[in-house]
C-alpha cells in the first residue's frame, strides 16, 4: 500500500505514543518485584538511590542505597538480561541502613531500589543511568 503524508504522520504519532507509555520494568523485573513485595503498593518516598547520570563504563557503575528503618533493600537493573542485582538485609548491628556497591549495566536503563520497611510497607526509587560506549574499544 502507499502511505499518504497523513498516514505517515499518524504512524509517527503512534510511535511517539508508544514511547511515552508509563514506565514498566520488563517481565522478569516485574516478577522479582512481585516476589519481594507480594504485590503490595510502593510509596514514592522513603528510599534513596544514588547512581551516576552517565556511566563512563557499564561494567563498573557505582551505586548506593539508603532507607531509614528498612529491613532490606532490593536493587534491580530492569534492562539487564537478568534483572537481579543484590538484596541488602540489615541486621541488628547495622548503622545507617545504607550500602554502596559497583554494578554491571548492559546498557542505558533504569536502576530500581525497593525498600521493605519494618512495618511491612514498601518504598521504591528508580534512577536512569546512561551507559556510554567507549571510543575505539581499545
Amino acid at each position: 500500500m502507499d502511505f499518504t503524508r497523513r498516514d505517515t504522520l499518524a504512524l509517527g504519532m503512534g510511535a511517539v505514543a508508544l514511547t511515552v507509555l508509563p514506565f514498566r520494568a520488563n517481565a522478569a523485573a516485574d516478577d522479582a518485584i512481585a516476589a519481594f513485595t507480594g504485590g503490595a503498593a510502593m510509596a514514592d518516598a522513603g528510599v534513596t538511590l544514588t547512581a551516576p547520570e552517565i556511566a563512563e563504563n557499564g561494567n563498573t557503575v557505582p551505586i548506593s542505597v539508603e532507607a531509614e528503618g528498612a529491613v532490606s533493600i532490593m536493587v534491580l537493573a530492569a534492562g539487564n538480561p537478568t534483572p537481579g542485582v543484590a538484596t541488602f538485609t540489615f541486621g541488628e548491628m547495622s548503622g545507617a541502613h545504607s550500602a554502596s556497591t559497583r554494578i554491571r549495566l548492559a546498557g542505558t536503563q533504569d536502576v530500581i531500589a525497593i525498600a521493605k520497611m519494618a512495618d511491612g510497607s514498601f518504598a521504591k526509587a528508580s534512577s536512569n543511568v546512561k551507559v556510554t560506549i567507549g571510543g575505539c574499544g581499545g
Binding site: T82, G84, G91, M93, G95, A99, S100, T101, I103, L105
Partner: peptide
C-alpha cells in the same frame, strides 16, 4: 557480623561487578 550478631547480609547476583565492593555501616 559483630560478635556473632548480623550487621548486613547481602544476596548477590551476576550484575555485581568483578572484584565485588561493598561499603556499609556497623554499630
Amino acid at each position: 557480623e559483630f560478635n556473632g550478631t548480623s550487621v548486613i547480609d547481602i544476596q548477590m547476583e551476576p550484575a555485581i561487578s568483578t572484584n565485588p565492593y561493598f561499603e556499609f555501616e556497623a554499630v
